[in-house]
Design a protein around this nucleic acid. Sequence first.
DNA 1: GAGTGGTCTAGACCACCCC
DNA 2: GGGTGGTCTAGACCACTCC
Lengths: 240, 240
Amino acid sequence: MINKNSPVPLYYQLEEYIKGLIEKGELQPGETLPPEREYAQKYKISRMTVRQAINQLVNEGYLYRQKGKGTFVSERKIEQPLQGLTSFTEEMKARGLVPGSQLVHFEIIPAPSPIAEQLTIAENTPIYDIKRIRLADGVPMALETNYISAHLAKNLTEQIANESLYDYIEGQLKVRIDSATQVIESSIASKDEAALLNIAEGAPVMLIQRKTFQKEGTPIELVKSIYRADRYKFMIELKR
Amino acid sequence: MINKNSPVPLYYQLEEYIKGLIEKGELQPGETLPPEREYAQKYKISRMTVRQAINQLVNEGYLYRQKGKGTFVSERKIEQPLQGLTSFTEEMKARGLVPGSQLVHFEIIPAPSPIAEQLTIAENTPIYDIKRIRLADGVPMALETNYISAHLAKNLTEQIANESLYDYIEGQLKVRIDSATQVIESSIASKDEAALLNIAEGAPVMLIQRKTFQKEGTPIELVKSIYRADRYKFMIELKR
DNA sequence: GAGTGGTCTAGACCACCCC
DNA sequence: GGGTGGTCTAGACCACTCC
């Protein structure tokens, strides 16, 4: 199970191994994990290395510890596809739907003051203004507007914009998306929005404004999305 | 700064010390932290202990690391009051509003099948059914319905229910709230809801269904909330 | 080559839980 | 008292970055 000659860190090998046991059901919720010292002895690794593996799984919610008693498998399965920060494309795939896109606007504009401020760039710096209708199994699901600095997003084409922007940012630009803040509100569809989403004017919609960051805390892009309330629910997991 | 005779763990002392420097602005965003080995030498502690302190701060978003370069202070300040799992009471206080409550329903009922299932208790087990109008500065903000097992919530009174339920759960019951899942949707107010919230029928509202858990993954309670869209936005931070 | 974080070791003592 | 996780040490070698 543990290969000392692998370039993969030992703690990570153990972490994946234990996670696998939980996901395959070989370790049942509520069950006690073997003691840390046992893992250390069995795989001929240090206890600190075992702890590093287990720490990760505790942070991710797979396990929990009780002082003096042991380490246990959490009752609740982690809802993998729905937690964390995902793109529309990733999320729809996770739900078993086929994601699609219809570009309705693609332009480079000088950044208006409020957007420039949010992206921490100078006013009137060129930014991409991209508006897309997002489809799930071919049906309009949301209206999404992205703002991203043209300086950061070099050579962004209509073609790319109509596919997965996150794949482009992480794959091509080599910019790692680390976190995001989101503001979610409930609203009703305007006439234009209703037309694009193929719903009635005044129908309930969810307005989501997202700001994504690199690990240093530098903003990457702003996204304003309008989701049809009849087809979309937003799910998250919170830690106290 | 570091007291070896204190019962407070060394890594935690260092963690709080560094966090303090960041919050006081003595360590500016983007600034490089002293190397781990320097902290170890300076405070006569092991480098692993230093790493434990820094790991925590990296997880919390205060710092980030770059292999071969160093550890840096994140650009973005963590929005303390809005992240994580908070109660209505805590959230309104954080926003500078005075939270209030108006009890409209308080009863012990046999758990209907879907609710029993969510709480992982047997059908018809007695549960509290509590409905409250939640106020901010005296104005209706949300309509909240809580379901909690009567077996778990012993001696829950109308008096307590009308104050902070989270304070009661953690303070009196000694049950530690660890995490929650939330489903957020956009909807429009029904006639009854509109009347209680003092808004027009058909006005946009946000429907939030929360399920809270203990660290073992055992469900604690279910909450269904209906928020006025004109007065409430939901803010969260996501990690990739 | 010097400095940094990433990984890892082989021990140690403590506080807590259960018998 | 024996087992558990929590903390801590004093080293080590590696990969990476920068000069």
